[in-house]
């Protein structure tokens, strides 16, 4: 087939604009994913920003017709793991203060806030591999196969990381129910 550079230009431009709209729509979920990995807003948004930049830079490698969100999550988890390995960015940072809860809040509300903070902290204590598995399946709602694809591991590896991560979290967060 004859190549038409002008037409290719237009096609690429349209694709890029569509992709940008999809990425904007994806930002809330990517931020949630990053928050569950890093435990704080600043590192999480750094991770999301790097993810967006890397994705747009490499957009030619994304195959149209495949899920853009899975591809973005894959980039995010790669950056996260790289960052952890470099011991520079995205490392566990102090959990946002939960003790600043105004005293006018009812006991239940304070309890709920403490539970949130405990949950965020417990996630930070998991090994990164387990944290990724827990986050993708339980927080982001991916199916096992999708999550395994994002992490580029066999499904058995995913389910075993998921089981170990859950066990550790349940011990920390729901000991009374478990015993």
């Amino acid at each position: 087939m004859e190549e038409n550079p002008q037409r290719n230009v237009v096609v690429r431009q349209e694709r890029d604009e569509t992709v940008q709209r999809q990425i904007v729509a994806m930002l809330p979920r990517l931020r949630r994913f990053a928050r569950s990995l890093t435990g704080n807003a600043t590192d999480a948004d750094d991770l999301v920003q790097d993810t967006v930049e890397r994705a747009l830079k490499n957009i030619a490698r994304w195959e149209p017709g495949t899920r853009l969100d899975s591809w973005m999550y894959r980039i995010a988890q790669n950056l996260f793991i790289d960052g952890v390995r470099r011991r520079r960015q995205y490392k566990a940072a102090p959990v946002e203060a939960a003790e600043n809860a105004p005293s006018v809040e009812g006991e239940r509300a304070t309890e709920a806030r403490l539970m949130l903070a405990k949950t965020v902290a417990a996630m930070q204590e998991l090994p990164e591999e387990q944290r990724l598995a827990v986050s993708l399946v339980l927080v982001e709602g991916f199916g096992y196969q999708e999550a395994a694809d994002i992490l580029n591991v066999p499904i058995g590896t995913l389910t075993s990381r998921l089981a170990r991560g859950r066990e550790a979290l349940a011990r920390r967060l729901h000991p009374a129910v478990e015993t």
């Binding site: 940008q20 930002l27 339980l138």
Partner: peptide
């Protein structure tokens, strides 16, 4: 446990998107 995780992180969905992230998409 699933409920705890979702309550802890779903609230991120309701936060406004920081300008620098929208900018990162737009600047390209």
């Amino acid at each position: 446990l699933t409920h705890s995780l979702q309550s802890a992180f779903d609230r991120v969905l309701d936060e406004p998107i920081p300008g620098r992230l929208s900018e990162a998409v737009r600047s390209r």
